[in-house]
Each structure stands twice: as C-alpha cells, then as structure tokens.
Design a protein around this nucleic acid. Structure first.
Lengths: 201, 201
DNA sequence: GTCTATATTTCGATAGAC
DNA sequence: GTCTATCGAAATATAGAC
C-alpha cells in the first residue's frame, strides 16, 4: 500500500460501513460490500474472518461517529445556555454528516443489546457524569430544578429523531434532500430555544 | 375453526407480527414464525404465498397501531392545552402497548420507503390538515407563532424517541422494565409542560 | 494479497401423502 | 387444512492457483 491510495483494509472498512449502515447486518450482503470496495468476496474473509467480525470492526467506529464529540461541550465551563447551543450545533452537524447512522445503531442495539452495549460503556459517555453536571447547575440556581433523565432524553430526542424519521418526512411532506438539511439547520435555534425556555430561571 | 380459538390465519398473523417486529423483515425466519404459531412452515405458505406477502399483511396493521388513534385528539374541539395533554397521553399509551413497533416501522420504512409509504397515505394521517389546525390556533392568538413543522416533529420526537432508544436506556442507565414504564408515565406531564411553556401566550 | 472455483449452510418455497 | 420430506436458490465461508 502506498501513502496515496488507502490500504485494502481501509477500503473494505469504508465499504462495509456504507453497506451495513444502509441495510443493517441482516440485510447486508458480503457480495455487495465486495462490489462497493471494488474487490473480491474472498478477500473480505481474508482480512476479517467472518461477516460478524467485519460488522464488529465497523460498529465501534460508527458509534463514535454519533456520540462523543458533542458531549465534550456539556462538560466544558461555558455557561448553561452556551452549552446547550453548542451541544445542539455540534451534534446536529455530526448527524448531518452521517444521517443514517442513528437508525442503524439503534436498530442493531435493539437486536443485540447485550453484545453491543459494551462498545458504548468503554467510550467515555458517562451518563452519570452528565446527570451530575445538571444537578450541580440546579444547586447553583443557574437553572430551575428539572429531572436530569428527562432533560437528557428530551435533548437527544429532539436532535436525533428527525433523522430516524427522515424517510417518512421526505415521503409524507414534500421534503427533498435540500429542504431536509435546511430544516435541520433551523433546529440549531429551535431546539435550544425550546429546551431553555422551560428551564432558565 | 370454532368461535373460541382463533382461526389459523389469525394465529399466523399474530405470530408473524411478533417475530417481524422483534427482528425486522431481514432478520425474521419463517421457521420462527411457524414455531411461534405452533404450526408448520408449509402452512405459512399455504395461507400467504411468500414471506413478503405475509409481511405486507402485518405491516399495515402494525402501522395503524402507532399512528392514527392519537391524532383524533388534535382534530377535536378541545382547547389547545387539553389537546396536547390528551394527545401525549393517548399516544404514549399506545406506544407502551407496542413498545418495539416504532423501531420496526421506522427501520422498514427506511429500507423500502417507496414501497411502504403508500400504506400511510391511505390512512387518514393528513399532515397538512394538522399543520392547518396549528396555523388556525396561531391566527386566533391561542398560541404564539410557531413553525408547524417543528412543532409537530418536536411533539412526536419527545413521545417516540424513548422507545427507539429503550435498549440503550436499559443498558446504560439502570432502567429495568418497570422503571422504563414509570419513566414514560412521567412524560405524560413532562412533554406537554415542555411543549406548552414555549408556545402559550 | 488477490483471484476463481467450490464447498457448506441456511432458508424460502414446493410436492405430495393424509 | 395440515403435515413430512425435499428441492432449489441464495449467501457465507473455504481451498487452492497465481
């Protein structure tokens, strides 16, 4: 492999990610991954022994794509409003860059929670840490008392759901690709506004 | 078939619904459906010619499970607050009764939007009608001006997302089955509160 | 490392007896 | 209508040449 064209392993991983996220583990075909990578089926098994092992190789990588970046903002020392605006902006951007990852990840997690959830646990997304952050803000009277569980779920729901429902949105309302992206862009203001109005003193 | 035990066709449909919603079309096995129904694989093909036809038979039924009931509330002549509380309560109840239907439906829709979206269109969920309702409330100054698109998405997001993320919630936080249900019950107040605070004058 | 060819397994579907 | 047995078509995985 030269430094210019990516190593075969990287090409395979990229192709696998595309096909797996688009079709899910059960719907993905090794043949399709090989085609996408421009190589032969047998080579997939040479690099990764089985479909399952190939899946495992991309799943961790894909989860990191949609989780941790934005969380840093919440743990920074910005004030609370800035944190929310910052989080939503970063999070929506990373989802826009990978619009069908959320559906893929949640689908696979619901099929094999026990096997796949370990991948999250080691990823530094400490839910309790975030909840602690919110508790502290409440004590300092920066925000009204809220249930941290609901607060976090509300925030993530509002960001992630439109991507999960994208096919419905685009089929039912007249959304095309551009309108969907514009709609998400609007939500960078809409979501913080909604969240903050209910909790700022 | 007697009037007491359900007809074989009904038994098959019920089994198919369970297996399909749990594993998705690609993950579902005709054998598993037969086992669940307590009959033989061949009989599935006798009643429904193919796996795909069996899927089509349950998909429409399953979609109706999570969409239309709650919408009636929004079209009633209650005042706006009552509508929101009523909608959220009814909607969450119907989701609680079928917790893994949302994930199933959204997953299948994202795999085959063109083929499956027709099922919605004939179901009386007229998105534009709802948007019109909201526009009217704004004109009457019952609520502040809001973007109807965002309003509807916010509402549905907050209701549905916890069910899509249920495996993560139960794996990452210490939620068990009972705590999850209690959490959803709390949201019957939490969601209307959040939504209404941002839009009542 | 990469390919062609082939083995193996799984699964949807059918044939045919009862 | 329901079953047992089997077919045939994928799809994953391996063998072996280059």
């Amino acid at each position: 492999m030269s430094e210019l064209d990516k190593s075969t392993e990287q090409v395979i991983l990229r192709a696998a990610r595309k096909v797996f996220t688009l079709r899910g583990f059960d719907g993905a075909r090794m043949q399709q991954i090989a085609d996408e990578a421009g190589i032969n089926k047998a080579l997939l098994h040479y690099y990764f022994r089985s479909k399952e092992k190939l899946f495992d190789a991309i799943f961790k990588e894909v989860m990191q794509l949609i989780i941790p970046g934005a969380v840093q903002v919440l743990l920074s020392d910005l004030n609370f409003s800035e944190k929310i605006y910052g989080f939503v902006e970063k999070y929506l951007d990373s989802l826009l860059a990978n619009p069908d990852v959320p559906g893929f990840v949640l689908h696979e997690l619901s099929l094999h929670p026990e096997r796949l959830l370990d991948n999250i646990k080691g990823m530094g997304v400490d839910f309790n840490l975030l909840v602690g952050q919110i508790r502290r803000e409440i004590e300092l009277k920066h925000i009204k008392p809220v249930e941290p569980d609901h607060f976090m779920i509300n925030l993530v729901s509002l960001c992630m759901f439109p991507f999960l429902a994208r096919p419905v949105l685009m089929g039912l309302t007249g959304f095309d690709h551009g309108k969907f992206n514009a709609f998400i862009a609007e939500r960078k203001q809409e979501i913080p506004r909604l969240i903050l109005q209910s909790i700022l003193p």
